[in-house]
């Protein structure tokens, strides 16, 4: 059975691209376009992985990640932050919020995402 991934990304274009990438390795992807919607969808059906953008309306990715990692029912779900904020400070903020990985959206993003999926045992 395919692993279920929840992608939280407000840009429909980027969401479609990331969704296609994840589906290309056999993952089943649901998409939420903001933080509150994402948190609701996590509770509806616990995903095997959450891919989270930082820049989101209403509640940013750091806040969403902190909420997920503080709640006992969602704390163990791996979170990969995929983001345009790539400075040392942003990286540290993401990891301190509890993210399992922090990947800048650059030309190597897909390669790193695949590598991390493999390390998390979500693709063969």
């Amino acid at each position: 059975m395919a692993h279920d991934v929840l992608l939280i990304e407000d840009s429909p274009t980027q969401a479609a691209q990331i969704k296609a990438t994840l589906e290309s390795v056999g993952l089943q992807v649901r998409v939420a376009y903001d933080g509150p919607d994402g948190l609701r969808m996590v509770l509806e059906q616990k995903p095997a992985l959450i891919v989270l953008d930082v820049k989101l309306p209403t509640m940013d990715g750091f806040q969403v990640c902190r909420r997920l990692k503080r709640a006992p029912e969602t704390a163990s779900i791996p979170v990969i932050m995929l983001t345009e904020k790539d400075g040392a400070q942003a990286t540290m903020s993401g990891l301190q919020a509890g993210a399992d990985d922090y990947i800048p959206k650059d030309i190597f993003a897909t390669e790193h995402l695949m590598n991390t999926l493999q390390e998390l045992g979500l693709m063969s």
Binding site: G87, A88, T91, M92, L95, Y102, E119
Partner: peptide, 14 residues
């Protein structure tokens, strides 16, 4: 780990 990889990558970029 991926998190440590991200830390080191951040340090290298800086």
């Amino acid at each position: 780990s991926p998190a440590a990889q991200a830390q080191l990558a951040g340090a290298a970029a800086t």
